[in-house]
Design a protein around this nucleic acid. Sequence first.
DNA 1: ACTTTATGCGTTTTT
DNA 2: CGCATAAAGT
Length: 646
Amino acid sequence: MIENLIEKLNPEQHEAAVAGDGPLLILAAAGTGKTQTLVCRVAHLVDSGVNPGSILLLTFTNKAAREMLERARAAVGPAVGDVWSGTFHHVCNRILRANAQVLGYRPNFTIADKADSRSLIAKAMAEVGVGGDKFPKRDVLASFFGNAANRGISLEDVLEEKYPGHPSDHGAIVAVHDAYVRLKFDAGVMDFDDLLVNCVRLFELKPEILDYYRRKFRYILVDEYQDTNTIQSRFVDSLAGGGNITAVGDDFQCIYTWRGADFRNIMDFPSRYPGARIIKLEQNYRSTPEILDVANASIANNHDQFAKKLRATRGHGSKPTVYRVYDSMAQSMEILKQIRNYLDMGFTYSDMAVLYRSHFHSIDLQILLARSRIPFRITSGMGVFETAHVKDVLSLLRLLCDPQDSLAFERFFGLLPKLGPQSLAKMWAKLGGACDLTDAAGRAAAAAAMPPTARSAFEPISHAIARYCEAKAKTGDENVGELISTFIDNFYFAYLQKNFDNPEDRVDDINEVAVQIRSGASLADFLQNVALNTNSEAEVGLNEGGKDEIRLSTVHQAKGLEWPIVFIICANEDMFPSSRAIGDNGDDSEERRLFYVAVTRAKSHLGIFVPSSRKTFEGGSMPCRPSRFIKEIPSSLLNVKFGAYR
DNA sequence: ACTTTATGCGTTTTT
DNA sequence: CGCATAAAGT
C-alpha cells in the first residue's frame, strides 16, 4: 500500500519522504507536490516502525492536518490517528490543558476570542483611565500587544517601531497592557497569543516538562514553515532540540508577516540546524507553462529570497488573459459570462474560483451570482461563530461548562433587560466570582443576586436549564439541542425580534450550530474548538463536501488550494496591492508574494480582471489604475481583452 | 438604566 | 453611505 504511494514520487520527493533522521529542510515551490511528500513522509515513518504518538505534525490550519492524516491513514492504517497534529495554537492548547496549573491557571481555562480580548482591553483602558481622541483605539492596542507577543519582543520596542509619533503615550499603553494581562489572568482566560507564549514560558520554567515532550516528540514536521513567527519557531526549536525536525515551506509564499511571520526563519534554518539537509522541489505538476511564466516573471521583481524557479511538467495551454472592464459591476458580468462559457465547455462550478485581496472586493459579484442562481461558496470574513446571536447562545453553554468564565457571565446575563454593566459587576461580586447554573442552589443564588426587577425574565431560562441538568444527571446525556431550543422559545426569540429585523435567519444559524454540537464530542471540547477555529465552515465542517459550487475566497484563504480555472479580480493599484499593506516604507514585496500565490493556484486557465473605476465611500465613482503587478509582467506573456459591458 | 442623537470612520489579510 | 461606538437626554 505504502509502496504504491511512494512509487509515484519523483526522485527529489522520494528523497525527502524517506530521508533518515536529522534536520531536513524541504523547499517546496508552489504546486510541486509538497503535501503528497509530507503525507508520504508521515506514512513512511509509521510504516518503518516509528510510534505514531511520537510524531508531531504542525500545520497552518486544522483542516490541512486532518486531510493529510486522512491520506496517510489510507496508506498505513488507523495507527496514524495517534499522531499529534494541528495548528500551533491547537497543539499548544493541548499541552497547556495538561499543565496549566503550573502557570497558575485552571485546567479548564477559557480561550478568549477576538471579541473577548476587545472587551477586556476596553476594561483595562477604563481602569487606567485613558481613552479619548488622541489615544489609540482598542483594536490598535490589540495589534500592538499581538505584535509584541508573536515576535517575542517587548511592547516598548513595538511602540517605538509602530507608534513613534507619540512617545508620551507609551507609558500609558504599557499600563493598559499590564492591566489587560492581569484581567485575563483573573478571569482565567488566555487569548490566542497566550496559548503560544504560555507554552513557551512553560517549557522555560519547567525543564522537566519540556524534557517530557522532547522525548515524546521524536519526530517533528512543520508545514508552511515560511509563515511561522518568532514565538512559533521558538516553540519548535525548544521541542526539537536540534534533532529530527522536518520543515517544509516556500519563502516565495510567505504572506503573513503582518502577523509576525518572518521568512528569515526558513532562510536561517540551515544555520540554526547545522548539518541540515536541504531538498528542493521545483517540478511543478499543477499549472501550464504559460501560467508558470507569469508567476516566475512576477516574483522575479522581489529580491532577497532563495533562488527558485518553477519548472513546468504539463503541456502547453492558453495564455493568461487580462480583462480590462469598466467597473466592478461590469467585472462581475464578464465573470458570469465566462462561467457560463466554461460550463458549456464541460467544466463544473467547483472547477472555478474567484480570488481577491480583501473580502469586500467580492460583494458585487456575490449579489450577481445569487441573482443568477449560480451556486457559490464564500469563505467569509465573519464566521457563524462570530455572529452576535451565536455568541449569545454559546455564552450560556460556556457558563454551564465553566462557572468562573466571567466574560460568558457578562454576555449571558447582559441579555436580560434591566441588567447593564453596573448591575452585572455587582452581581458578579455578590456571587464571589462564580455562577454555577448547573445546580439549583447556584441558580437561586444568581436570581437572588440580581436586581428584583430582572428576575422575572430569568425565571423561564432558569427553568430550561434545570430541565437540561436534571436530564443530564439522570441519563448522562448532554441534550444541548433541546436546551438551546427551549432557551430560544422561552426567551431568546423575543429578544431577537426586538433587536433585529431577521430573527428567523438568526435562529437558523443557531440551529445549525446546535447540530454541530450534537454530532461532536463533549460540549467542553466543542467550545474549545469553536474558539480555535474562528472563521470557517471549512474548519468546523459546516460544508457538506462535494457540492458543486464556485469558490469565492481571499488569496490568504486560498493558500494550498488549486483549481483548473482561476479568476483574480480587482487587480488595481490600492486594491491589489492593498494601499494599507504597503504602508509607510513602500515595501510591496509581500503583496507581490500574495499575487504569486494567487497566480499559482490556477491549473489551466487564469483570468485577471482590471476595472478602470471603483466606487468611493460616498457611493460615487473614481478612476483607478491597473495593478503594478500586471504592468511589470512582460506583455508577451499575457493576452489583453476589453470587457463588453458599459 | 435605557433610549435617542451625534459623531466618526472606514474597506487588509487570520490562528 | 451605512454601520458602530460615544455622548447626551429622558
